[in-house]
Amino acid sequence: MLPKTFRHASWPSPEVVLYWLAFTWVEMETDLGSSAGGGDLSSRGFGCSLRHFACEQNLLSRPDGSASFLQGDTSVLVGVYGPAEVKVSKEIFNKATLEVILKPKIGLPGVAEKSRERLIRNTCEAVVLGTLHPRTSITIVLQIVSDAGSLLACCLNAACLALVDAGVPMRALFCGVTCALDPDGGLVLDPTTKQEKEARAILTFALDSTEQKLLMSTTKGLYSVAEFQQCLAAAQHASHHIFRFYRDSLQRRYSKS
């Protein structure tokens, strides 16, 4: 599929670095908060589920690729421009410049948006084959349409489908999954705003489609190493459903040729 050099173009590969970062961070976190976050989780079975999903691709005429993604009542619209001309100041000589803009629905973008932008950009940089389009820019503009929980995961999913629609070459697809840990230890996948508010910890993962490896993780709250691994495992299970959803929607789209 790809020449091997592209896969090992830079070392260490971004996913490895991110994984390592996530791991070290977890260790630090648990060291600080082991008194509060320790303890095993109560048993749970099939209680977890993803809300209903919907997506629409190519709905905007101006951007090169666009997608809207809905997870329950959370909705994000994404437009992708690229590979396009780049400002000289932002030009990178051996790869494409990836730019992510996240627009809130009310008011001007603040620190929270900037932080999410960065997380999304780092995730995209790990999968987009920027070396194929040196000295160009790829711009991803995300507009929050409605927030009803698991917003970052929805942003990531929408960004991935928009990149696919734009035809940007990627090493793998990616998806975002949010897990919440209840105060009583239960695990909730794809939480709503209410569940997020009640949760003791919220963990968001970005996973790639080839090996379900971790591309990005961001967390809030206290939890143990065991809980982190459980959430990650649950997210990997959920990612199978999301990637199947991607596949089905793309299959439908290209069913008539």
Binding site: R44, S49, L189, Q229, A238, K256
Partner: peptide
Amino acid sequence: QRITAFKMEKAPVDTSDVEEKAEEII
């Protein structure tokens, strides 16, 4: 009916084995 749109109903995710898996990894 739009070909570019797709919907999926609420999908249950089997998370019964995550504890074992986590223990294994640790």
